[in-house]
């Protein structure tokens, strides 16, 4: 057939990110750290807004941040964890992405 070109997809090494996308392995933690600047009601509000949590759940995580220094908010695959990280950073919370053991 005229004009038909066979395309061969190059082989690429699968990264952890690719594997995570495929398997949905929840290997990433979104961690919120305590800081002396964000108001506690503000942190609660942000958790409710970003995760859609009820007030008691959001307050429990907020208190954990305040009293224990940090709280693991969610354990997700890379894409979801990255998404939540972006949303929380937009509110200037001190959050990081950590790999689960």
């Amino acid at each position: 057939m005229a004009g038909t070109i066979e395309i061969t997809r190059p082989e690429t090494e699968k990264t952890t990110r690719d594997q995570t996308r495929e398997t949905g392995t929840p290997g990433y933690l979104v961690v919120c750290w305590n800081d002396p600047v964000n108001l506690m009601p503000y942190v609660t509000h942000v958790f409710r807004t970003v995760f859609g949590w009820d007030r008691p759940v959001a307050e429990r995580h907020m208190r954990e941040v305040h009293e224990k220094g940090k709280s693991v908010l969610v354990r997700e695959n890379f894409e979801k964890a990255e998404f939540y990280l972006h949303q929380l950073r937009k509110f200037s919370l001190h959050v990081t992405l950590e790999t689960a053991e």
Binding site: T15, T16, R17, F78, R89, T96, L97, E98, T99
Partner: peptide, 28 residues
């Protein structure tokens, strides 16, 4: 410029997301 992770052993995947995050926050 807040680092995306505190884990010194965080993989390239996490570190490479730093640039995306910085750009997203700047646009936002």
């Amino acid at each position: 410029a807040q680092p995306i992770s505190r884990d010194a052993a965080a993989g390239d995947v996490v570190r490479s997301a730093q640039e995306d995050l910085n750009q997203a926050l700047s646009d936002h």
